[in-house]
């Protein structure tokens, strides 16, 4: 259940940002979660339900953008979509690849009333 820790981290950051902006409620929060970030979006949503209670996010709309993972072949530089770490390059069959997307675990923005 590390999604709960992740959710609490999100709330903590939102609280700090709201304080900086001098507001007590956040209207919307935009998150970005990569498909290989280690976070299951459904589990994160479930955890957020619990974590937002009595926080600046209690009424907020929570938008989660899923970022599809993409890898790059270290031999021939082909870029291709992946669902795991061990898909070989479709061009040269090489397993040595580098992820260029998919690890995202970010708060993109907050919307506040001001």
């Amino acid at each position: 259940m590390h999604e709960l820790s992740i959710a609490m981290n999100i709330v903590e950051i939102a609280n700090e940002e709201a304080e900086k902006a001098n507001v007590t409620l956040v209207r919307e929060i935009d998150l970005e979660v990569g498909t290989l970030s280690g976070v299951v979006i459904e589990a994160l949503e479930f955890a957020m339900d619990e974590a937002v209670k009595n926080s600046v996010l209690q009424n907020a709309k929570i938008k989660i953008r899923k970022v599809s993972a993409k890898a790059k072949c270290l031999k021939c530089s082909t870029e291709f979509p992946v669902e795991d770490y061990y898909t070989p390059c479709p061009e040269c069959n090489n397993f040595e690849t580098e992820l260029i997307n998919g690890k995202e675990l970010k708060i993109k923005s907050l919307v506040i009333d001001k």
Binding site: I13, L105, K106, K108, S109, V111, D113
Partner: peptide, 12 residues
């Protein structure tokens, strides 16, 4: 009024 705050922060 709605204000958007750009953060681009790593959750971890």
């Amino acid at each position: 009024h709605k204000t958007e705050i750009q953060l681009e922060l790593d959750i971890l």
